[in-house]
Design a binder for these strands. Structure first.
Lengths: 215, 215
DNA sequence: GCCACTATATATAATTA
DNA sequence: TTAATTATATATAGTGG
């Protein structure tokens, strides 16, 4: 929304953080006002600057006062007082085999037939509960199979990687040998040690960006 | 901000009011989140639909103190004991972050507390439907992230395998060279080049230590 | 009622005064 | 500095499925 896109993280420069705070704060409050007017709902926005100042918006037109809104808020969050925002994402399609897809497709079709059939009227709650269970089972099986296949891929690839690395090391040794021997008899060991040290370092030289996500 | 400018007054058409409510509500909450992140401040947004549902955002790092601050603004403290779970805003989020996962953990905890609480008797069907949605959302999110991580791992490993194979080929060539044409004047250069190439590749040849955690 | 889309309105990051 | 300005990013009103 500006000359360029900014990263969604704390703005480190104090000055521009302050400017952004001022602009976005009023933007937020403006939007809150618009929402409350357009949709005729109660909205409260509270912003506490880190110097302790409070900026707020509470729509006053309705019967709700701030205290009432806050009361509602506290009632609503009596259990823990925390906000939680769940992001819904469409599940990515996995690399599933043809057989599976076919099976799933058939399953879906059979369900469709089931739901469109003339005997639909005659079905009872019990039938739908059974159908639900069947579908849930199919889903669980599909997911399990998917996970299994992915883990297998990962395992195979890791194994492959290990072997390639070993081979690689041997080749490096050989190269070091071939290069090192002509000079003195110690060169070989030095070369090998050096390579191994480099190798040992390698495993630590990586930013593990995935780790935090697992916490 | 749309195909045309709209008057700043209550939208009379019920349907489009509802649509606008949904869109602007998530927009408002998104902006609140951005403000809290970019400027490192505490922000709370509370939106009550006129059917009594609460949509909220409170930046989690400060929620407990925020709750306390909120208490200061409460002038009446009559308790009516009605319990309800805060509705969870469902919105798409691009970057998965620690905060999100943390939110999942918090969600689980709050659910546990909720289900063990003394007010369990007072909950209505509506509350459980909402809870179900929240949990389903959290589950989808978790699954999606899992799948994403696994796919990333597979991608990385494949890439790595490719690079290792290339390196391997080069090393083999070199060994052949060194054996086939020993003591040629090119030896030194080859050695240096090789080491540099290895070095350049190093950044890709990383063991993914996070893998076991996915199981 | 919920998507995706897209034209347009609005918000705002960088820049200038 | 704070206040305008401007170029760009983002939000969203209307639309169709």
């Amino acid at each position: 929304m500006g000359r360029r896109k900014i990263e969604m993280k704390r703005i480190e420069d104090k000055s521009s953080r302050q400017v952004t705070f001022s602009k976005r704060r009023s933007g937020l409050i403006k939007k809150a006002r618009e929402l409350s007017i357009l949709c005729d709902v109660d909205v409260a926005v509270l912003v506490f600057s880190n110097r302790g100042r409070l900026y707020e918006f509470v729509n006053s037109s309705s019967s709700s006062s701030l205290s009432q809104i806050l009361k509602r808020y506290q009632d609503s969050t009596a259990a823990d007082g925390k906000a939680s925002i769940a992001a819904v994402e469409t599940e990515q399609s996995s690399p599933s085999s043809c057989a599976e897809v076919q099976t799933c497709g058939e399953l879906v079709k059979s369900v469709e037939r089931y739901l469109e059939g003339p005997e639909l009227e005659n079905l009872r709650l019990e039938d739908f509960m059974r159908l639900e269970r069947q579908l849930a089972d199919a889903l669980v099986q599909t997911r399990t199979r998917k996970t299994q296949l992915m883990l297998e891929s990962i395992g195979t690839l890791s194994e492959q990687e290990k072997l390639l690395k070993q081979e690689n090391e041997q080749l490096k040794d050989e190269v070091a040998n071939l290069i090192g021997i002509p000079k003195s008899r110690n060169h070989k060991d030095l070369g090998v040690n050096n390579l191994m040290e480099v190798d040992a370092d390698r495993q630590y030289s990586q930013p593990l960006r995935t780790l935090p996500l697992l916490r």
